[in-house]
């Protein structure tokens, strides 16, 4: 499969250099990843079972083993700026097969959380946040579907936040508590104007 996302030039150059520089290591990155993910990437012995089980690996340069290694070595910038970070489908096949009982999928999720703190995030994730802030649903209802629902004898809007919009306030409170809507709006605006 042809890649659709390009590496930033700086990262491409870095990856061509296979040496490991002590000043690029951030031991606290390993600890933070382990805390958020509640798993143990430092136990990894690089057998590669994870990459071999990965549905994204055969069709891209995404290598889950590499990310676990970066976690272990504390290579924060290299892990968080790599666009492949976003190619994990979270299928958990690697987690089920890891002989060291690590959950590589959760390592990826933790790294994505840390990337977001640096505004590194694809906009499609943020648009889901915006949709939920407005309606409570990531995939909201529409008129064609409302008509179909009525034909089935269901209410036009399901008895969720759609049917009871007063509940949307609680959702907005939670998203505002974490300043997620504010940050989502800001980043989407920066990217798309």
């Amino acid at each position: 499969m042809a890649r659709t996302k390009g590496y930033p030039e700086a990262l491409e150059k870095k990856l061509a250099d296979t040496r490991l520089y002590e000043d690029e290591r951030h031991p606290e990155f390993t600890k933070t990843v382990e805390k958020i993910s509640m798993t143990i990437p430092h136990m990894c012995y690089q057998c590669g079972t994870c990459t071999a089980s990965c549905p994204s690996a055969p069709r891209s340069s995404y290598r889950i083993r590499k990310f676990v290694r970066r976690g272990l070595l504390g290579l924060e910038d290299e892990a968080l700026t790599d666009p492949d970070l976003w190619l994990c489908t979270t299928c958990y096949s690697c987690t089920d097969r890891c002989p060291r009982d690590i959950a590589p999928t959760d390592v990826i999720m933790a790294m994505r959380n840390l990337a977001f703190k640096r505004d590194i995030i694809p906009v499609n994730f943020l648009k889901t946040v915006q949709a939920i802030y407005t309606t409570g649903h990531g995939v909201p209802n529409n008129d064609v579907n409302r008509a179909a629902r009525k034909k089935l004898g269901l209410p036009a809007d399901p008895p969720t936040t759609h049917g009871f919009p007063k509940y949307v306030k609680g959702i907005q409170y939670i998203l505002d508590y974490f300043e997620l809507k504010k940050n989502a709006d800001r980043i989407v605006k920066e990217r798309e104007g």
């Binding site: 958020i36 976003w86 489908t89 979270t90 999720m109 933790a110 994505r112 959380n113 977001f116 995030i121 499609n124 994730f125 943020l126 889901t128 946040v129 939920i132 409570g136 649903h137 990531g138 995939v139 008895p159 969720t160 936040t161 049917g163 009871f164 007063k166 509940y167 949307v168 609680g170 959702i171 939670i174 998203l175 508590y177 974490f178 997620l180």
Partner: peptide
């Protein structure tokens, strides 16, 4: 009917952004 339920929220999208938001939204 579970009145007022929302998106679960989407584990891929929300879990990737901030797991704490994911926990809180699902807890609601």
């Amino acid at each position: 009917d579970l009145e007022g339920a929302s998106c679960c929220p989407a584990p891929g999208a929300f879990g990737s952004i901030d797991l704490n938001v994911w926990y809180a939204m699902a807890a609601r």
